[in-house]
Amino acid sequence: MRGIFPKGGVIRILISYILLAVYLLCSLCSPALGTASAAGAAVLEGTQEAVSFCLVLTGSVCLWSGVMELLERSGAAAGLARLLQPLLRRLFPRAAGDGEILSALTENLSANLLGLGNAATPAGIRAARGMARQSGGRPSDELCTLVVLNTASLQLLPSTIASVRAAAGACSAFDILPAVWVSSLCSVAAGLLIAAVLRRLWP
């Protein structure tokens, strides 16, 4: 689950306005909706809930990040990269001509699949910079495709939300896996399909 903690300036400003709107809207509307007392108590309950949520989740997030470290140190990403190269050559024919960009792309995609967010973002940014260099600072079709691919979740094992489910008492926290895979595939397919159409219409 990459990007839990936003750093982008524009996004932080957007969230600031949303927070402001939430507090103002709720204060004004809850008396009309007859929920004033519940809304009044909710804010302080929310802080307690944030702390207990964090505490409950810490154990499993830490265990999974230990497993991710094992995966990273055993070079699983490099093994997966070899399998992914033919696919990437088809998706990014121009960037794949440059060995450096291709290796950054494969590292990005395989780290994304394995859920290694710490490795995926720097590699993706290296690939994006290389593509921008190739096109002279213009947003090329391949750069846009890379962004679309990275904004769709490719992670095979969504461990954070599984931990949330386990903490809430799910009988089997990971039984959502097949559904997550199907839905991820649909979203990547839709993204690439729309990209293929839009790249012709939007110069």
Partner: peptide, 22 residues
């Protein structure tokens, strides 16, 4: 759970990539 597990923070990721690529 499936919704959040199969999606990303789209606007944030796009902002990071385009900003980093200049």
């Amino acid at each position: 759970a499936v919704m959040i597990g199969s999606s990303e923070t789209t606007l944030y990721v796009a902002a990071v990539y385009f900003a980093a690529a200049g």
